[in-house]
Write a protein that binds this DNA or RNA. Structure first.
Lengths: 212, 212
DNA sequence: GAAAGCCTATCGATCGATCGATCGTGAAGC
DNA sequence: GCTTCACGATCGATCGATCGATAGGCTTTC
């Protein structure tokens, strides 16, 4: 698709990711979308609502992928491994969108921010669940105060800050490596089992339409 | 000290961290520093130079602390553990400064940005060194393409995004926990030795004047 | 002829930055 | 001891540019 709507959306994602919400003016956004600044307003509410829409869609997909990957999975190692792999792959393949989600929350007014945070919390709840189950089962070491969860999420989100598709690393390798790092840090030992990357591949293709 | 200079500096750090460089106007900055916007310019060059100064100082201290902590340390586990603990503690105790360093690089013009990045690279070099030595010695598992280094740095930097001094965690516990997570992820096994936290404590006090 | 898409022109507000003027203070000159 | 003067600190006023957003009109499409 190359409709005007998607052109606006893609330009916004690219510019917000590169320069930050406040660092991009609507004239610059309009130019990138090949429109006049006035015409932009046929395709968005306010600039802020455009930002919130981008964040919402990104989190919606992330949440959907994570639920697909974890429902009916009993083994906590498999569960957490899949979450980490998917999270890392998403933050590499959709680096701009996820960077916007991670960095621009503060640019939203309280009302919109609450809405986005609620969704983010739902997603992080899946991680907490997997970690909890693993600790109950004794395959992960204890995590007081959720430090491990926060540390691991930050680690996996950081991918968006350095990954380059021109680098030597495929998305699949990346996901697998991050699953390993995550499980190790959670206390699963130095050589944890690789999660079902074939299943992750299917989910990624279904959710983002990206080849893995 | 409560000189006008430090008032300006502190207000800038607080506001840049909370709203981002482009989200803060000089009038708002002036108000927070209890000055007129014109008077600000007696205490800074441009707004951008103020930002670069903040970043430079923050990285300078981080680099200095890391060098103090690693010179003459042979054991790679001890070395990496100290780096992780110090990094995490710095990102908790100086969360605003470090958040500015991590998030606002893109707001700098190429010239100033290069200067800051050069310094950041020097710091990350210490991490690469510790990881390399550990892999050579066989106590860490291989890290192709520096993934582990990047992942660990992002994990430890993430502290600035969630740590609250009102939480149940002391800086010392935090540093110790992050050292553990880091060494585990590097492949040192599920129960790596704690680094010399007493030494870290001394360095933190010397570098930032913070109690630990 | 209604609707959708897109434009030019423009709004009031705010941006970063600079101007010249004023104020207080402490050293220099006599 | 008094005056003068230089200087750092601070201010209100204002610069030109840009901000996000809107009004109203011209095309194209169905």
């Amino acid at each position: 698709m190359n409709s005007t709507h998607t052109r606006v959306r893609k330009a916004a994602v690219r510019l917000f990711a590169a320069k930050g919400y406040h660092g991009v003016g609507i004239r610059e956004l309009a130019e990138a979308a090949k429109l006049s600044s006035a015409s932009l307003y046929h395709y968005m509410g306010t600039k802020e609502e455009l930002l919130a829409d981008i964040m919402w869609d990104c989190l919606e997909r992330l949440l959907s992928a994570a639920m697909l990957a974890t429902t009916d999975v009993q083994d906590p190692q498999e569960k957490l491994g899949r979450l980490a792999a998917l999270h890392a792959i998403a933050h590499a393949a959709q680096a701009k969108e996820t960077a916007v989600v991670d960095n621009e929350l503060r640019a939203l007014s309280p009302k919109l921010r609450r809405r986005i945070i609620k969704q983010r919390d739902a997603y992080e709840g899946l991680w907490a669940e997997a970690l909890d189950e693993g600790q109950q089962a004794g395959v992960f070491l204890p995590d007081e105060h959720g430090i491990t969860r926060r540390a691991l999420l930050e680690m996996c989100s950081g991918v968006a800050r350095w990954y380059s598709p021109r680098g030597p690393l495929t998305l699949r390798e990346l996901g697998s490596r991050y699953a390993t790092l995550t499980l190790r840090a959670a206390g699963a030992g130095p050589n944890p089992p690789e999660p079902d990357m074939e299943r992750c591949r299917t989910i990624v293709r279904y959710t983002w339409g990206t080849k893995v």
